[in-house]
Amino acid sequence: MRRVEHVMGFPVSLRIDDAGPPARVADAVDAVFAWLHETDARFSPFKADSEVSRLDRGELPADGISADLREVLDLCEHYRVATGGAFDVRLPGRGLDPCAVVKGWSVQRAAHLLTAAGLRRFCLNAGGDVVAAGGPWRVGVRHPDHADRLCTVLDLTDGAVATSARYERGDHIVDGRTGRPAAELLSVTVVAPTLTEADAVATAAFALGAEGVGWAAGRRGCEVFAVDAGRRVLRTPGFPGTGERPAAA
């Protein structure tokens, strides 16, 4: 079973290799994409009627939000504190934007829907961030300077990998301590047990800049592959990648 849809502003592809009953597999796939579309409607800061937008405008009391949004905001606060404010979803002059947490959190929950349905071998790719089960799956990490090249390929069995970088959306990650775009790194890739953590840690590390690589490496269960502004490759010993190339342009 393979399916691709455009959700939350990027393509989401799902491949399931289980040989289960077709109806059960189809129902699980429908549930995954229904959940992701629901997430977009509820938590997008770009939709005026979303729960996030309504909270940001003061139309919802802090104690009147959904349990899901409370969980997301608690995660955002956790990473704000852990990075000394470098990761912040409430930047001055900007509205509340929890997308850096919502993406990984929602896709990880989608993966839980698959495992709850009894599926054991799948790969869910959300705009290049991947959660997989029953591998090994081969996941390529894009070269920060060349869209048609990879700087590493890793083997992922059960877990997740996420990359934060400047090559797709430019200087979109801001260091909340300074209010300026983070520019000391070109890309940060994090492997973690869940995409909730991999995605948030990759973004937080990028916001921290050069110190973010060591910070991410110190997170339990996380392995890191990064390219700094000088095109140096920095990686933890346990990063499951092979075939690394120099990142020079």
Rank of each mutant, 00 (worst) to 15 (best):
R2C: 05
V4A: 13
E5R: 11
G9S: 06
P11T: 06
P11C: 05
P11R: 03
V12R: 02
V12M: 04
S13Q: 10
R15K: 02
D18R: 03
A19K: 08
A23K: 11
R24M: 11
V25Q: 13
V25F: 03
A26D: 15
D27Y: 01
V29Q: 11
V32R: 10
L36P: 05
E38V: 01
A41G: 05
F43C: 00
E59Q: 13
P61V: 00
I65C: 01
L69G: 03
V72D: 05
D74W: 00
E77C: 00
H78T: 13
Y79K: 06
R80N: 02
G85P: 10
A86D: 12
D88L: 02
G93C: 09
R94Q: 14
P98E: 04
C99N: 14
V102C: 08
V102Y: 03
A111L: 05
A111M: 09
T115G: 01
A116S: 14
G118D: 11
G118Q: 13
L119P: 03
R120P: 01
A126G: 14
G127N: 10
G128L: 07
W137A: 09
V139N: 12
G140S: 13
G140P: 05
P144G: 12
H146Q: 13
H146V: 14
A147Q: 09
T152F: 14
L156E: 14
D158Q: 14
V161P: 09
T163P: 08
A165R: 07
A165T: 12
R166M: 05
E168D: 15
G170K: 09
G170C: 09
D171F: 10
H172L: 10
I173K: 01
R180P: 00
A183W: 01
V190A: 03
A192W: 11
T194W: 00
V201W: 03
E211R: 15
E211P: 01
G212M: 12
G212P: 13
G212K: 13
R220A: 15
G221L: 11
C222W: 09
E223A: 14
G230S: 15
V233K: 12
R235Y: 11
T236K: 07
G238T: 07
G238W: 05
G241W: 09
T242W: 06
G243R: 11
G243Y: 07
G243F: 08
